[in-house]
Simulated scan of single mutants.
Amino acid sequence: MRRHAPAPEPDPASPAGPAGGGPAPSLAFVESPVQLLNVLEWAHSETAGAPGTAGAGDAAWLTLVVLPPHDPMTRGQLRRMAELARDEGHTVEWTEARGGAAPLRTVGRLSVPLRRIPRVVVGDPFSRYVQLLLALTSARSVVVVDDGTATMEFVAQLARGDRLTRWHRTGSGGAAAKLFAPVSGRARRSLTPSAGRRVDIFSSMPVEEASTALGLRALTNDFAWTRARFGPPRFTSGTDLIGTSLVETGVVDLDRYLAAVAELAAAHRATRYFAHRRESPDKLHRLTSATGLEIVRPDLPLELVARRGPIGRRILSFPSTVVHTLPLALRGTGVEVAVCDIDPAWLTEGASPRAQGFLSGITATARTVTRLPGTP
């Protein structure tokens, strides 16, 4: 890994580097394509209009460490996003950090940079891997970028003083969670502002008020890099439907979901279904057999795919990250984004008690989207 020379500790009230002429050296950890996209958006906002940081060759202040999961669809999108990051001039390190002794080797290799780097950027504060890395850092500035709507739950849990737990999980997490509790607790303290550490939230989600109350600095992600880098899009004549992995996470019943998609497709003359990267092939096969929808497997996050086009002039979605992000990425194009709520009857028996409230909150707080009536 590229070793950073020890640097004077920065003033946590300022994002500038030690000399004040540009951003502080930063180390970012990403595990999903959306996280990597939002790190690029954050980097763009850090250097926008700053003297001496406009060119790609000046972007060496940021090193992205990609910690890919085993899922092939996620890995494929991550590789494409890594190429875009390198095109922007950033250093990208692809680190196979899972399985066998790989986690221990990775943590050992990153421990020195984590102690020296003045700023750390993370995309998933719920990840145990990220929590372990945060527990090792001495950085006086931490930035949390969006990992989708989970950012809303992260801020809410931080405000309540809760243990960091994904919203769709049930139970206490078992013995493994108890063993990991000391590490998780230290990581949580790293994500809490203090006299010696500033914590920023770079988000397109409605977290400004709660973040400010916690002492976090809320930075708005308006997808300026995406709009500048891609588009304007080409358009199709049909309506597009965005898929969700709520079935795969055990929140929504499969048969109820397939019926809802069929109803929406028929009512709104949808022709294409953009699959979530975690949707199973068997489910997608059943879906296209029942509806005739063309299944599209995006090779990049949907914000970039939509901005590049071709895309329908109307996009339908269930409650998900895209009802917040697509209106920003597609600003000025005239594309309508509409959202259909999740009927409580669609939830599985094993769904978290928080599921309905969380999903309703995603829709209720979405800006500039059309709300559709629920489908039977």
Rank of each mutant, 00 (worst) to 15 (best):
F230C: 11
E46S: 05
V107M: 03
A228M: 07
L136S: 00
A159K: 10
A329C: 08
P373I: 07
V120R: 02
R234P: 01
R98D: 07
G173P: 10
E349Y: 02
P113C: 08
P232A: 07
S320A: 13
S245P: 15
D200G: 05
P118Q: 02
G350W: 05
T165R: 15
T151F: 05
S194H: 06
P25H: 02
D255H: 11
L132R: 15
V322F: 08
S211I: 05
R277G: 03
F235P: 07
A224E: 13
T325K: 00
D341H: 05
L191K: 03
E46T: 04
L62T: 00
P193C: 00
R160Q: 14
H276G: 05
L264K: 04
E93T: 06
L164Q: 06
L36W: 04
A60I: 03
T63R: 07
L264Y: 03
A48F: 13
S352P: 10
G334W: 04
R105F: 11
E349Q: 13
T333G: 06
R80H: 13
L104Y: 08
R160S: 11
R371E: 12
R277V: 08
R128S: 11
I362P: 08
N221Y: 10
E46R: 10
P344Q: 01
E93V: 13
L179N: 04
L219V: 13
G292Q: 08
A351T: 05
S138V: 03
A329R: 03
G89M: 07
T170R: 11
P69D: 06
L27H: 02
A19N: 12
G243V: 07
R354V: 09
P376A: 14
N38F: 09
A265T: 10
T244E: 12
F358H: 14
R79Q: 14
S203H: 00
G55R: 13
K283Y: 03
L359H: 09
E349A: 14
A290L: 14
H70E: 15
P298R: 01
D87H: 11
S320K: 04
